[in-house]
Amino acid sequence: MEQAVATETVLEETAPARRHRGPRRSMLGERIVEAFLTLNGFVAIAAILLIFLFLFKEGVQAFQTISPARFIQTTELDFDNMPQTVRMWQPVSTNPKYSLVPLVLGSFLVALPATLIATLLGAATGIYLAEVAGKRTREIVKPAIELLAGIPSVVIGFFCLATLATLVQNAFHTTFRLNAFVGALGVCFVIVPVIATMTDDALRAVPGHLREGALALGANRWETILRVVVPAAASGLTASILLGMGRALGETMIVLMATGNAAQVTLNPFESVRTMTATIAAELGAVPQGGEQYRALFLVGSVLFTFTFAINLLAEMAVSRMRRRLAL
């Protein structure tokens, strides 16, 4: 995703360079620089394609030994030898179980509440920064928020494990001390800055004449922000939320430490869950290369990548839509 954005800026920078090309300038040097920049753009695309290929090539091989149905459910004899349909992720077992259902549910049970909370906090912060805060406040607050994004996720994860989990349990009286909601709160630390800075950028990209027009027509400041500026930047806001969600789905260390990692099929955010990322992080280091579990983990990775790729693609589309509408 960041690579894709980088590609665009590269292309934008090369365009004006061509326009200002003077006759006395060294044509050769300029061409070399231009070729270098173009190459960098294509390297990003090539990298994404190669990652795609690598993941799916390994992941698809899982189907050689595991039938597709087993990625949903398996039949298992229970204590009384009665056949039961189970949806479990339990690869180390006499009858290995590779259901992706608890993992996908777990990932979304963390990512959706995280996105929801972070959207409320992040969008509010972004609107404050772009429309309300004075210049000096802004110069202090914005870098501070960006610093928040720089906290190593293992530190946030440990904070969740040791402190936040107890606070949440005391507040909500949850059965599980470590649960999806604790993970979601932890992930918010990472994605609030993403949403806040992107909202700020989107709002500031709205041309001044729209604001001035609204004020001239008698709207007060609050009406101007809510009815004119925010709708004009709606696509940008959508993009920031989607990017935040993509980041939340991909977050690993925080959820590994804060969610308890029990692969349950549940829709209750106060239960312990196991995400796709945590499963890969916890298990991939210890499985023999090329084995059944190794390939199943690559399949999990492929599914995860598909989700985040689709979400990021939607975000990209929203951004370009906003650019077109505001004629930027």
Binding site: T94, P102, L256, Q264, A282
Partner: peptide, 13 residues
């Protein structure tokens, strides 16, 4: 005795 762990068993690092 080689049975599976319950699905709600939380796995710690």
């Amino acid at each position: 005795m080689n049975r599976d762990y319950a699905a709600d068993a939380q796995t710690m690092p």
